[in-house]
Simulated assay, not measured.
Amino acid sequence: MRQGSIPGARGRVRPLTLLGDPVLHAPCAEVTEFGPQLAELVEDLYATMYAAQGVGLAANQIGVPLRVFVYDCPDDEDVRHLGHVVNPRLVETDGVVLRGPEGCLSLPGLEAGTERYDHAVVEGVTMTGEPVTVHGTGFFARCLQHECDHLSGQVYPDRLTGWRRRRLLRQATRAPWGR
């Protein structure tokens, strides 16, 4: 992405992968090739995330099983965080565990109270291989943890238990996109 360019402006909107698709439930592979194809993937992730009105999107959510995600997400002070991480590692979660509403572009229209730490740190690299460390608090910390989960083959319903999990999965089967 060129300096000053709008993320996703050159990307194409790809179909979203929905709950139940095997690509969402398997760990993603490390990125080993940095070049035009990776840059195109990042642009497509931004374009798809914006088209779906999301705040984050992992590559497996568009059917690509690689460890890449993008974000354009506010924190609890309404500070905007914009970027992408290749081969992310969630290296720190701490602070208070909060149950808050969480949704996902792979479960459109649904949300459930999900517990997450209110502080998270992710390390990885950019699409050009430069090291990057991303610190998040509040809602942005939730976003970082959510996207890292995706790349490990987890979706947020996997973090739910009891009636919350049963209710959400029942809603998913009744949704127009449900399987």
Rank of each mutant, 00 (worst) to 15 (best):
L107F: 15
V79S: 11
G109L: 07
C73E: 06
G136L: 13
Y117V: 06
T93S: 14
A9C: 00
P74I: 01
P157S: 03
L19P: 00
T128G: 05
Q154N: 07
E111I: 00
M49H: 08
G138M: 14
G11W: 05
T93M: 15
H25K: 10
A58M: 07
A29P: 05
G95M: 00
Q171G: 01
D44H: 09
T114A: 13
S106A: 12
Q3S: 12
V68E: 05
E102W: 03
R2Y: 12
H146G: 15
N60E: 10
T133I: 10
T93L: 10
T32G: 03
P101Q: 14
V86A: 12
V121D: 02
P65N: 15
F140E: 05
T32P: 07
V79D: 11
R166Q: 11
V91P: 09
G124S: 04
G83H: 14
Q61E: 15
A52I: 09
A112V: 02
H25T: 07
L98C: 13
R89M: 12
D75V: 09
A9R: 11
V31D: 03
P15E: 11
R174W: 00
A141R: 13
V64K: 05
E111W: 15
G95Q: 05
P15T: 02
L16F: 03
A112S: 15
T48S: 10
A58P: 08
R99I: 02
V68R: 02
L82Q: 13
L90K: 01
A26L: 05
Y156D: 00
G95F: 00
L110G: 13
G129T: 10
A141K: 07
A52M: 01
V155I: 14
Q3K: 14
P27F: 08
Y71A: 07
E123A: 08
T161W: 03
W177N: 08
T93K: 12
P74W: 04
L169F: 04
G83D: 06
D76A: 08
V97C: 04
G109S: 01
G178I: 01
H150S: 05
T161N: 03
L105W: 07
G4W: 14
E30C: 08
E130R: 14
A9M: 08
G83R: 12
G162R: 09
T17I: 01
T137D: 11
G83T: 14
G63S: 03
M127E: 15
V31S: 07
L107Y: 14
G153N: 08
H135F: 11
P88D: 14
V155L: 15
P88Q: 08
A29I: 02
V96P: 00
T137I: 12
G95E: 06
G11L: 04
L90Q: 08
P15N: 06
S106K: 06
D76L: 05
G162A: 03
I6A: 13
V23I: 10
Q53I: 07
A58F: 04
I6N: 05
R165V: 11
G109R: 02
V70R: 05
S5I: 05
T137A: 06
G129E: 05
T32D: 03
E102A: 09
V68T: 09
P108G: 00
P131C: 10
G178D: 02
C73G: 13
L98K: 15
V23R: 00
A51G: 01
